[in-house]
């Protein structure tokens, strides 16, 4: 039987005293340096870290800024560093921090715009660069009237895992390479390119290779592997990148060994 969380539903909620929660604060228009502020928050074991942050915003300090929406782990807004580990705060339960020391900071590796909000423009641009959409060769597009492209469940299974990325940016925050060199295309964007490359309906791999197989693309990755460890959706971007390396290498061999195969 799979390991399970203690069943909150049956046991009921335990509310015990309060704890100090440390939050990273930064005002771009007031000071140049960020600071850490502590708040006293109830320790409820049905609460996630995001609930505690909402409590602070609602009841203690309205000036705290952060992103959140769905609070069910699918919109990807609420990624933050919790005790130096990238986490979706809507899925990180307080009771999993029994030491009751929790420090929340913006995802690392990105410029901070305000408090827990970081600048995502870089990722949005990279996402556009890898052409994350279905590409068909000219003249090979099926007219709508002719219905769907056929795709067997087995063919779907080949790329399905890589469709599950919610763009939460935890993988970038976990990647020391990206922190050192933000030119790196990065885990999520490469995994999404790979998602389309592996889709039986797609014919656009060559168009993506220019960015993917570049130095800033897959070859910048030195396989730390932490991106896959922190991924909340088990997308395994590290594997996506290594697989892309293998196929790009094979491309190279084919091109060198069988020069005519290209044409």
């Amino acid at each position: 039987m799979a390991t399970r969380r203690t069943c909150l539903w049956k046991r009921g909620v335990k509310v015990s005293e309060t704890f100090e929660m440390e939050i990273f604060r930064y005002y771009p228009d007031k000071d140049n340096e960020p600071f850490i502020k502590s708040y006293e928050v109830p320790f409820r074991d049905d609460w996630v870290v995001l609930d505690a942050i909402n409590y602070i915003k609602d009841e203690i300090d309205g000036t705290l800024s952060y992103r959140w929406s769905c609070r069910m782990g699918v919109c990807g807004s609420c990624g933050m560093m919790v005790n130096s580990v990238p986490k979706l705060t809507c899925s990180a339960f307080l009771k999993d921090y029994p030491s009751r020391k929790i420090r929340v900071e913006p995802l690392q590796g990105f410029p901070v715009e305000r408090d827990l909000i970081f600048d995502m423009d870089d990722f949005m641009n990279k996402l556009t660069e890898v052409k994350p959409y279905l590409l068909r060769k000219e003249g090979e597009e099926k007219p709508l009237e002719e219905g769907e492209y056929l795709q067997s469940p087995a063919e779907l299974a080949h790329y399905k895992q890589y469709t599950l990325c919610i763009n939460c940016m935890l993988c970038y925050a976990a990647c020391p390479i990206y922190a050192l060199d933000s030119n790196f295309v990065g885990p999520a964007a490469i995994a999404l390119a790979q998602r389309y490359n592996l889709d039986s309906r797609d014919q656009g791999r060559n168009q993506r290779q220019e960015v993917i197989a570049s130095h800033e693309g897959i070859w910048e990755c030195t396989f730390v592997g932490e991106c896959s460890v922190v991924c909340p959706k088990d997308v395994d971007p590290a594997a996506a990148i290594q697989r892309a390396k293998v196929s790009s290498t094979l491309d190279w061999f084919k091109e060198k060994m069988i020069p005519r195969s290209k044409g």
Binding site: L134, E141, E148, L150, Q151, S152, P153, E155, T163
Partner: peptide
Amino acid sequence: PKELIQMEHWGCPWSRELDGTV
């Protein structure tokens, strides 16, 4: 139907029957 087929053509990973239809 046209709209959902359009989504299929744009790459939506619809679950499939064994014969490859949606």
